[in-house]
Structures are given as structure tokens and as C-alpha cells.
Design a binder for these strands. Sequence first.
DNA 1: ACCGGTGAGTAGGAAATCCAAACTCACCGT
DNA 2: ACGGTGAGTTTGGATTTCCTACTCACCGGT
Lengths: 169, 169
Amino acid sequence: MGWKFQPSPTLSLMAASKDPRPCSIADTLAVVGEKYSLLVLREVCLGNGRFDQLVRNIGAPRDILATRLRRLVDAGILVKQPYSERPQRFEYRPTRAGLELEPVLMTLMAWGDRHLRTDGDRPMVVEHSCGRALAPVVTCRACGDEVRHEDLRAHPQAPGWTVTGPAVA
Amino acid sequence: MGWKFQPSPTLSLMAASKDPRPCSIADTLAVVGEKYSLLVLREVCLGNGRFDQLVRNIGAPRDILATRLRRLVDAGILVKQPYSERPQRFEYRPTRAGLELEPVLMTLMAWGDRHLRTDGDRPMVVEHSCGRALAPVVTCRACGDEVRHEDLRAHPQAPGWTVTGPAVA
DNA sequence: ACCGGTGAGTAGGAAATCCAAACTCACCGT
DNA sequence: ACGGTGAGTTTGGATTTCCTACTCACCGGT
């Protein structure tokens, strides 16, 4: 992508460059929305954090991958840890903030499983500690109910928003 | 972005072009991972589905937006509905599949609110029908528990995967 | 000491995308 | 007739991406 960020961007600077609205979705995508970034996170969460592993597993060009890794480290989503001195070798690992993006990955995976695989074959099953295959559901922390579009109403807290009201095809 | 898709891609064709692994995360990102796509979905879920509204609210170039809209319609995430004949005017609305991506948006928003806004001011609050501000949590459908990294184990169902095992910084 | 191999990148130019502004086309209101 | 709106398309230049090759540091075997 190129979610527009400056040469030497403090995190706060680059986030709000183009989107006319203040929005945490846009800001988050400015950090992890570029091509490959979320796939990097997928690999790193699986424990495959070495540069060449990432190149092989993601299929990204090495230079782009290097750029993405720098960015994710800058954003506090990954850390670069040495796993061997002499020869110096590094491994990228998720920080706590990085791990908190894992639910996004799970939700994306679930959507893809449901809507993109008519054959019904999941290429990957994630097992939850309860013993079952994970089927992630987004719920409301307050009431515990599954979040459905009809139950949501948006309340802009800052100028720049117009909300016409929900409508579904 | 450019998540690599061919000139005249049937949905199934373009998904699996470069990623060496079969993966529903990658496949889903191939559909909605390009720049602006998820912001389009944000707007459309808010009911702001007209072309010029989208241009203004997202800040995307008109040609790119046109491309994204075509793609999202092709993918069955949006539909283009006339809201006036003579003059012909259209509005994009989410399909059911599109709405099922809303949890992804909520999760991204929550992450941004928590990690990108040190001031603590949310630019937008979504109210749930239970009366509280929505704090989305991803849970396991089977047991209802919140999904945490430590509780997950990946089981590849297809060749191409290596899972080193979880590790956190 | 030499040879080949691995990990982690960097360099350089071609190819694809993105962007902004201008342009189109159909219609409407006055 | 004139200006304005909605929904795009065109154009040409600025950025990004992509691909291949190269580097640099080190290791292990002979």
C-alpha cells in the first residue's frame, strides 16, 4: 500500500495524514494495513520470525519485507531479538500489542473460511484450549452478546463525521 | 496495495496467486486488504454509500475508489443499488457477507483506540443495543472464553505450513 | 587456507500503482 | 441558457513494488 507516511514519521504524525476523518480504523490500518504486514504478523504469531522464513512463507520481496519489519518494530508491534551472537542472528517476535492484533487475524480467517472456500476445506484449523476448533465470535464485553450490525449505532465524538444511518442491501 | 490479482480474475483465481501458503487470512486480504477497501466498508456500513460521499469521507482518488468499488461488488461484499432513475444515481450497500466483516472493523477500531490514542479520546464511540459503549471482544464460540494467544494452537490442514510454536517477546 | 552455504539484508532498474486535476456525460433547477 | 450535482473516466507524472543480483559476516568441512 503506502498509507502515506513521512520520511521520519513519529507514529502520531503519519497516522492522520490523508483521511479527512479522525478514525481509529484508519489509524490502525496506517500501521498494519500495508501489503504483507498482517501476513508478517501471522507468521510471527506462529513462531516463524526469522527473515528467511518470512520471505519463504509469505512470498514477499526481501526489500519490502525489510521495510515492513522496520515499520512494525517502530510501531511497537514486533521486537527484533537476537537468538544468536556470533553469527548475529535475529528473530522477530510479537509484543503484547502485536498479540492483541491476533483476534483480527482470527476474524479475517473465519470470514475467508466461510465466504471464500466453497469446498469447505479449511487450510488451517486453530485449536482453542477448550479442546474445540476455534470459531471466533466478536461479542460485546458489557453484555456478552454477539455483535450484530443491527445492534450498533455510531456516535461520532469529533467533527468530520456524517452518519446517514444503517442500511443493508 | 495490489495483492496480486489477474486482469480478469474470477474470485477464486486471484486469491491464491503469490502467497506460497494456502491461507484464508491471505485470501481475505486479497479481497479487502487493498488500500481504502476497509474504509469503504466502514462508510458503507455507516450508510454513506454514494460515490461523492465516499470520495469526501475517505479521501481516496476517484479512480482508485472506482476500482475498489468494482472489486468489492465483484467479491459480493457490496451491491450497487439505484436510488433514483432519471437521473440515474447509485448507492453502495453492504451485503450480508460485507456486514460479516464489520467485526473486523470493530476489532481494528478497538486496537487503535487502545494503542494509538494515548490521549484517551476516542474519535467515535459505537453504542451497542445493550446500552453500553461497544467494547468488542473476540471469544471462542464453543466455550465462550475470550481468545488469548496462549490458548491457541495451529493445526495446518494442508501442505505448505511450518509452525515453529508460539513465542512472545 | 579455501570452498560452499546460510542468514540478513542492500542496490538498481523495470513494472505496476497511485494520485490530483481535468474532463465527460446525463440530468436538474431557475 | 447557465450553472450545479452525481458518477465516474482520462491523463500524465510521482511513488511503490517487484525481481534479480549483490554484499557482508560468519560457519563447517577438507
